[in-house]
Amino acid sequence: MQLQLISIVLILHCMEYTNCQHHGSRHRLHKQGSGVSSQGCQGGCQTCSVYNGCLTCKPKLFIHFIHDGMRQIGVCLASCPNGFYGTRSPDRNDCIKCGSECDSCFNRNFCLRCRAGSYLHKGKCMESCPDGLMPSDTKKECVPACPADCDSCQNSDTCTRCAPGHFLLHGQCHHVCPDEFEPNDSMECIPTVHCEVGEWSEWGPCSRSGKTCGFKWGEETRTRKVLQNPSPMGSPCPATSETRECLVKRRRCKPKGQRRGEKKKRFNLQEKENAESRRERKREREKETINLEDSESRNKTEHRRRRDQSRDAGTV
């Protein structure tokens, strides 16, 4: 009997508790739904509330919830932000959070980009890549190992050092350097440099055995400068001088003794002219001195004459 009474009390208490819970839930729903409206909503909202922002979105837009403490605020977006992917249904379109290792994703099970420290491989984010693959810090993906003939590489497309017997060019390894390239000591292909020369000079004087007289036929020469020396495999430099036959002026070459005599004669003649010039300058200086003395003498004579005239006038 006592056991039955206890059971009845528990049932009544439970019913009362249930009613209270139901009443509280309805009160909270009423409070949360307060202010629900379809008028004046902005940012793509179809319905909204003052407390929770967007509640439903216009067609084709995704609803995304931002947490503000215990409250979540809805916003309507044309596409979901990083770390979320979009799902569509007849009722509404939602932004769903990606897995913790994904920076962006196609769905919960397929990542498109990984967070720092992980590398993407077949939609999964991994801390280390499977065998035969290597991590790419630029792509943040697991990529194939170095290309063939590479000793080391930056990624699956770019070598930094080639295997022995190969030459590096623009991140690729070659058995033989391509046209217009040649290998250097560092096993790299560098551009081939060809020789460059300047323009020809004018033809020199026509002479034979160093003489410009006494013969009918002689030679004249012209030259040009090298502007760019070639690399080992570059085109060599062409000739930088060339000679052709020419006609020497028809005049008799004078003997050496005669040439020395003529040279001495010219020297003596020059010395004679210089001596005559010195004598002429000396005569000019003497003439100037005489003229100066005559002028001073005339001035003195005139001064005495005027003084005598003045004295005579005073006596009278």
Rank of each mutant, 00 (worst) to 15 (best):
F110P: 09
S231K: 06
T212A: 06
F62V: 12
D157R: 14
T212F: 03
K256S: 00
P232R: 02
G33Q: 11
V193Q: 12
S297K: 12
K249S: 08
G99L: 13
Q154T: 11
R283P: 02
H64K: 14
R298F: 14
Q2K: 15
Q32T: 10
R259Q: 10
D151G: 03
M233V: 06
Q32D: 14
F167V: 05
C76H: 11
F84R: 12
C57I: 12
K211R: 00
K139W: 10
F181I: 01
C237S: 13
R92L: 10
R222M: 04
V197E: 11
C98S: 14
H64P: 07
V143F: 05
G99E: 15
S310N: 07
V50Y: 09
E284H: 02
R251N: 01
T212H: 05
Q2N: 15
Q21G: 07
S7R: 14
Q21S: 08
E302H: 07
G83R: 09
C111T: 14
G53S: 01
Q228E: 12
R311E: 01
I190N: 00
C48D: 09
P59C: 05
D308R: 08
P236F: 08
S79V: 12
S128T: 04
N93Q: 12
Q258Y: 10
C177H: 06
K264W: 09
F215D: 07
G171T: 06
S207D: 02
G69F: 07
V50G: 10
I290G: 00
K140L: 11
L292S: 10
T240V: 15
Q228D: 07
C142K: 06
T240Y: 08
L61K: 10
R278M: 15
A148G: 00
C246A: 01
G69V: 03
D68M: 02
K58H: 12
H303D: 08
K124V: 11
S49C: 08
G214W: 00
D312K: 05
S118W: 00
H194D: 15
